[in-house]
Design a protein around this nucleic acid. Structure first.
Lengths: 190, 190
DNA sequence: TTATCTACCTAGTGATAGGTAGATAAGATG
DNA sequence: CATCTTATCTACCTATCACTAGGTAGATAA
């Protein structure tokens, strides 16, 4: 059952990237945690680049499916945005950074194949946000100055940054404060 | 003239941390760039932890002095906040992340002495912002919902995150869009 | 039954990591 | 002049890095 091992490798590797960064862990670290040898990980992921690519691909797939669920769950922009925040808040609760937030920071020390996929993740997020923001404004559920793109930039940046700052200060409440402050402004419709 | 060499080491090391992360460079990388041997760097900074600590201490000193200059330059909150943004924008222009943004992300793989100083940097930023936001509201130059602390959290998180996202997407304009969108809301006083 | 595949192993590679010991050359100090 | 200090060097250490070669037990397929 190698699929199980490969998944375990991805699970551990993802946590290590999210907490220590791409250059902050080794194949041995992963191997040690799941009780195999580091050579066996090369069987599943020949190079660290392959592992990194698989990590981001899986992360984006999961994230995308969560975004679709959010759309299905409600058609009201405030609720959708709240759920979007909850996605990041959940990650922070596990004392982790967004995988792509971490990798985005480390861009210059990443294989091109990995950073290219990080780019794609952020594009996906922004495109989703832009749609939700547009619809929400049209339906008069939320209000904002400027373009949907600018607000999407702002929102995504805020969440990624709030995770970094909240973790650096060991205070997850700072994330909540920052995220809620943002939502409050969008909802203050008058 | 060892002071000069020590400064060169710090300059190169800072750039490497800001672009590649704490675990993304070695003493040999620094030595190669400034034309000495890696053993010589150990003379100035015995361990990598010492180097990391010196890096953040110097960064915070410089940053703090810039913040004081901003206060001296104008007593109007909108101008002060604009100048605060410009500090980060300048770093991004050099294709670098905020030193402490990067280190904050890598928290779990950092020596405690380093992460402790990263914490202190963010505390300094927030305290400064809280003061500026309070005074600005009192003087009716800016308006915001919620506590100054919440808005400071939001602002700092936004800037740190916007640097990560803008760099990941290779699009510095995204930083400007996000930062300006935020300022616009604060200044829409009515 | 014979052959192939899967998923791991042991044992290693060369490169590089952070760090150290001891020599040396140039100035400064007595 | 003799000594101490500073800043660098050469030469090395041990540990770890990503990665590979070759082997093997057990399942699967022809």
């Amino acid at each position: 059952m190698s699929a199980i091992t490969a998944d375990k490798v991805l699970d551990v590797a993802q946590r290590l990237v999210q907490t220590r960064g791409y250059n902050g862990f080794s194949y041995r670290d992963i191997a040690g945690e799941i009780g195999i040898k580091s050579a066996s990980i090369h069987y599943h992921f020949p190079s660290k680049t392959d592992l990194g690519v698989a990590l981001v691909d899986r992360y984006q797939d999961n994230f995308d499916s969560e975004l679709q669920k959010i759309l299905a769950r409600s058609d009201e922009a405030p609720k959708r945005l709240k759920d979007f925040i909850a996605l990041f808040r959940q990650t922070l609760k596990g004392d982790r950074l967004c995988l792509c937030g971490m990798l985005g920071a480390e861009r210059d020390s990443l294989p091109e194949a990995v950073s290219e996929r990080v780019r794609s993740f952020f594009m996906l997020c922004e495109a989703w946000l832009v749609e939700v923001l547009k619809q929400g404004r049209k339906a008069r559920e939320i209000a904002y100055l400027g373009s949907p793109q600018a607000v999407a930039d702002q929102f995504l940046s805020l969440l990624e940054g709030a995770m970094v700052v909240a973790r650096a200060l060991n205070d997850p409440e700072r994330f909540d404060r920052a995220a809620n402050a943002f939502l409050r402004v969008l909802k203050s419709i008058d």
